[in-house]
């Protein structure tokens, strides 16, 4: 295992995708300029912009490019990894690439949305973040997800109306549930209420 980390023999063929995100990114910086910049970076064999990278058309573009340009690394400069890392990992995997060879640069939440007052600064930052992602992918290694077993039993903590509803739905799907309540009775606040809106029926 340790040796594999040293090896990086194959030739880098990186594809870079700069997302407009409609006007969310393109309204602050010109994506084309980031494309032109990225195209020159070592290892990059394909750089282009896309209106919405996350849309079907954007994902299709990436998948087709992986085949057409024989890409072995992908950089998507778009939104936060918290938004779309799973999306793009899945997309590259569909095209036969290891999902861990895709890296995102966050040029929306952490760039155009935060630096609308400084377009020049935002452009310089978007270029740097893209280059940084290109640097990182250059040293990424293919990884496999780890499979862990699952105990088929749920725990619901809190026996109010939300917890009861969750517990019933789980149990009705044949999943054993432990419903934990700190008071001597379940029911929560709802059990204390008189009639309840919107139906005005009794609460228990």
């Amino acid at each position: 295992m340790s040796d594999a980390l040293n090896k990086n023999e194959e030739e880098l063929r990186i594809g870079v995708y700069i997302c407009h995100c409609g006007s969310n990114i393109a309204g602050v910086i010109p994506p084309k300029e980031v494309v032109n910049f990225a195209a020159e970076l070592p290892g990059v064999v394909r750089a282009t912009d896309t209106l919405y990278a996350c849309a079907d058309s954007g994902q299709r573009l990436i998948k087709e490019d992986i085949k057409k340009y024989n890409l072995n690394r992908v950089v998507v400069s778009a939104c936060s990894v918290r938004m779309h890392e799973p999306t793009f990992r899945a997309a590259v995997a569909e095209a036969g690439m290891n999902p861990f060879l895709m890296e995102m640069a966050n040029i929306r939440e952490q760039c155009t949305w935060a630096h609308g007052h400084d377009r020049e600064g935002a452009l310089a930052k978007a270029k740097d973040l893209t280059a940084s992602a290109v640097s990182k992918v250059s040293f990424l290694q293919p990884l496999d997800m780890i499979n862990v077993p699952v105990s088929k039993k749920a725990m619901v903590i809190g026996g109010g109306v939300a917890g009861i509803s969750a517990a019933l739905d789980l149990a009705e799907q044949n999943i054993p549930v432990v419903l934990v309540e700190k008071e001597p009775t379940i029911g929560g606040v709802m059990a204390q209420l008189n009639k309840t809106f919107p139906t005005m029926d009794c609460s228990i």
């Binding site: 105990s151 999943i175 549930v177 432990v178 419903l179 309540e181």
Partner: peptide, 28 residues
């Protein structure tokens, strides 16, 4: 409320507190 108590797959533990949660998804 009574539905939850009647459902055989639900074990209701009242007057019970959670002391510790260890482990990770699938294996808490």
């Amino acid at each position: 409320m009574v539905d939850a108590a009647r459902q055989p797959l639900i074990e209701v533990k009242t007057y019970t507190e959670v002391e510790k949660v260890e482990g990770f998804v699938g294996n808490f």
